[in-house]
Amino acid sequence: MSNTNRTKLFLDIALFAAFLITMDPHFSGLAIHEWLSLAAAATVIAHLLLSWSWIVEMTKRIFGKGLNGARINYILNWLLFIDGVLIMLSGIMISEAALPAMGITLPMNFAWRRLHDMSANLSLIIMGLHIAMHWNWIVTTFKRVFFGGGKQQSGAMAKQEA
C-alpha cells in the first residue's frame, strides 16, 4: 500500500463528506455551506495533484487506440471539473456569508442562482458515475487501509522481490 493511495483515500473520504454536507445548506447553515465549499475546492486541487501523472498520461493518449474505459473516465472527469468550476463560480456570485465576510460584495443576478442549483444537481449524477467508475479502487484501497490487506500485500510483494 503506497502512501499516495492512503493519502488519496483519506482525502477522497473527506471530500465526499464535505460534498454531502455542502449539498444541504438547510442542514449545515449558509456560512458552513460556503466556507466548506471553498475549503473543498482547495481539496479538489490536492485530489488532482495526486492524480497528476494519470491526467498527463491520458491527455497525451486521449486520441490513441483502445483505452475506451479510460477515455470515458477522462471525459467524465473533465465534465466534473467544468461542473465544479460552475458550482464554485455561481456560488461565489451569490455568496451571502463568505465573500461579505471578506469585505467583497458582488452584484446579484438570478441567473447565477439558477445555474448554481442546476450545476449542483448535475454534479450529483456525474459524481455518482465518477464513484461507480472508481468503485473497485475505493473498495480495494479501503480494505487495505482499514483491514490490514496492505500489510499482507506488501509482505507478498516483499517475498516476490526477494
Partner: peptide, 28 residues
C-alpha cells in the same frame, strides 16, 4: 432558514446519496 443552520434533518443529503446511487447503479 438556510442561514439558521443548526443541523436539522439532512433531507438533501439523503436525496444526494439516492441520486448518486442511481447514477452509479445505472453505470454499473
Amino acid at each position: 432558514g438556510r442561514e439558521g443552520g443548526g443541523f436539522g434533518f439532512p433531507g438533501s443529503v439523503i436525496k444526494a446519496l439516492v441520486l448518486m446511487s442511481i447514477a452509479g447503479g445505472v453505470y454499473s
